[in-house]
Nucleic acid binder design. Structure first.
Length: 591
RNA sequence: GCGACCGUAGCUCAGUGGAUAGAGCAUUGGUCUUCGGAACCAAGUGUCGGGGGUUCGAGUCCCUCCGGUCGCGCCA
């Protein structure tokens, strides 16, 4: 058990030992009021009710009866009106926290609470034949962090990139490629060209104005039927259709890989939607024969299906009237496949808020058909808008592509590093500059998607997105680099030291933050909220900065204190690294 | 019309029933011959969207209204 949990447990046991309070009435928490100097507080309202007394009196009686051993982590219990406030013993606490971090190392904060239960996290999920843009970065980064959190809590995590490689739009893509030819080139440039042809084809399909620059006299051909025909051929396994489709799949994967590498993202499986196509017939027949659906020609319609809270969902289709399948059909098949293949305890989907209804319907029908007993969770995130409040779109020309964004961030970071070097504030070898600029710039972009509650919509603000000050990842990385700088200058850190020397308020404040990491990880995972980790990182970095300012390590008053402070710095560096790695953000030693 | 999410300082956001609602940015002032100033300290500004309700106690839970974003049978 980690130190802070032991502190809480010691209080709980001492409270129960008084025989004055029921376990159910013990509600320990951090004091919320400003200016209250306490590490945990017990509001006595509930036990006062149980005992038929008044809260202030109960607090008095409890405090009088409480007893703690001299070497306890609990230093004091003091009464403040209806509250009993508990304070840590700074010396005992310092020793115990540092021991925790040293023992845990890179795994400090982890636990085995998950007991290897299986969790599938579906995230990123870009579309084939399209470039990745700011919308995908949210799913990718948030999903990655959530997967990391569960892994750290001892769950077996399966990371699934559910590629959008199926559907009607590939009929258009294939038809357009045959009509206009295969674009040359590689990477995102080819994807951009394919997007352009897709757009052009759609323009023609809709019977564009002959005066339009994009007008093509061949538009007299019924392009809609042509695209539909290719879509059907693709599903039926026509060799030419398959070849072109495979060409696009490979191109896209190749183009996306550098972006994933830069973000430190890896997947265990990357099955596209098409992977599940052989299961679609059984989904359709299961649903069609069930009481849930009604038929109208070939269409299979589900009406008034209740969700898990008993609310009736809007009508949706599982099969089109032309016999084709839909997005939801393939998502249901995916759930069935995952249940059969992995037997997971939960499937977590990191997908934007606009698809909230789709997942409620998908989950409800999958449960109703008995396809899975796993917990099905949709973690939605808000939409990205430009500075004018417009949604980003290729058509409006305000789209921001992932590669562009990461490059811009890296360039800004590089400029700043070069400035710091010219000011003599940092030393980096030439080959390290680019590497560190990449770590700092990419980290800033990632942090921008992680520092706040993901449910909110966000507005593109380049200065905020690439902020290097205040609550930003460069600040966190900078504090880590400062730790490393001190440790380099320190020389060899003696293994034995006296942690009880660390009782300066800035030291205690920092240690309290270090001690919170284990519960932070649990809270962040339970809430599917990486920003909880980001908040903690920022609080910890600030506590370190305050310590840095108030307490000299290398010039400490005594050699013993110098060593003890060396250990607090080493522990801080470790904890920051652990927190940053949960967010998949790099922690360079110099910057 | 129905549904989901959001509304807290000038701006961007924390605060998941407890005491006097907190951070960053911006503003103003200070620290600074420095263990890396991407820093630290200090100062301010709040009808917590409005109104009801539940509770000993509501920014937090319930109802209602207002405002914003998005979604609602053959796209994904």
């Amino acid at each position: 058990m980690y130190t802070f949990a032991r502190f809480e447990q010691a209080i709980r046991e001492a409270l129960l030992a008084t025989n004055l309070i029921n376990a159910a009435d013990i509600d320990l928490g951090a004091p919320k009021a400003a200016g209250v100097q306490a590490d945990l507080a017990l509001p006595c309202f509930r036990s006062a009710k149980t005992r038929g007394s008044n809260p202030a009196q109960v607090a008095q009686e409890l405090a009088a009866a409480l007893q703690f051993a001299p070497d306890s982590l609990v230093a004091s219990a003091t009464v403040s009106g209806p509250y009993v406030n508990f304070n840590l013993n700074p010396q005992a606490f310092a020793k115990a926290v540092l021991a925790d971090v040293q023992a845990g190392g890179a795994t400090y904060g982890s636990s085995s609470k998950g007991n290897q239960r299986k969790v599938i996290v579906e995230y990123s999920s870009p579309n084939i034949a399209k470039r990745m843009h700011v919308g995908h970065i949210r799913s990718t980064i948030i999903g990655q962090a959530i997967a990391n959190l569960y892994q750290r809590l001892g769950y077996e995590v399966i990371r699934d990139n559910h590629l959008g490689d199926y559907g009607k739009q590939f009929g258009v893509n294939i038809a357009a490629t045959i009509r206009f030819g295969k674009p040359e080139g590689e990477g995102e440039a080819v994807l951009a060209a394919i997007e352009e042809q897709y757009k052009r084809y759609n323009l023609l399909m809709k019977g564009a104005n002959p005066d339009d620059a994009d007008y093509d006299p061949d538009a007299e051909v019924d392009l809609d039927d042509e695209a539909r025909a290719w879509s059907l051929k693709l599903e039926q396994g026509d060799p030419q259709a398959i070849e072109l489709w495979q060409w696009m799949v490979d191109l896209t994967k190749t183009a996306n890989q550098p972006n994933y590498d830069r973000l430190g993202v890896q997947f265990d499986v990357q099955h596209g939607e098409s992977f599940y196509k052989d299961m679609l017939d059984e989904i359709i027949s299961d649903a069609g024969e069930s009481e849930l659906a009604e038929r109208d020609g070939k269409a299979i319609i589900v009406k008034d299906l209740p969700d898990h809270r008993g609310k009736k969902l809007p009508t949706f289709l599982i099969q089109r009237s032309d016999g084709g399948t839909l997005y939801i059909t393939r998502d249901i098949a995916t759930i069935k496949y995952r249940e059969q293949t992995y037997n997971p305890d939960a499937m977590i989907y990191i997908v934007g808020q606009p698809q909230e209804l789709h997942f409620r319907q998908t989950f409800a029908i999958s449960k109703a058909l008995g396809y899975t007993d796993a917990e099905l969770i949709h973690i939605s995130f808000g939409t990205v808008f430009d500075a004018q409040g417009q949604p980003l779109s290729t058509r409006k020309g305000n789209m921001i592509y992932l590669e562009t964004l990461l490059d811009e961030a890296r360039n800004r970071a590089k400029a700043l590093i070069e400035q710091k070097m010219s000011e003599g504030k940092t030393q980096l070898t030439a080959d390290l500059i680019d590497h560190v600029a990449e770590q700092v710039g990419v980290g800033a972009v990632m942090y921008n998607d992680l520092y706040q509650d993901t449910k909110r919509n966000i507005t593109v603000d380049w200065d905020r997105m690439l902020a290097f000050e205040g609550n930003s990842s460069p600040y966190l990385q900078y504090m880590h680099a400062r730790c490393c700088s001190i440790l380099r200058d320190f020389g060899e850190l003696p293994a034995s030291y006296d942690g009880s020397l660390l009782s300066h308020p800035a030291e205690t404040g920092l240690l309290k933050e270090l001690a919170r990491l284990p519960q932070i990880i649990e809270e962040a995972a339970a809430r599917y909220a990486p920003f909880v980790v980001a908040d903690w990182l920022y609080a910890t970095a600030r506590a370190f900065s305050a310590f840095y300012d108030a307490c000299s390590v290398l010039k400490a008053e005594t050699p013993e204190l110098r060593v003890a402070r060396g250990h607090i710095v080493a522990a801080t560096a470790q904890a920051l690294r652990n927190g940053l790695s949960l967010l998949s953000i790099a922690a360079p030693e110099r910057m």
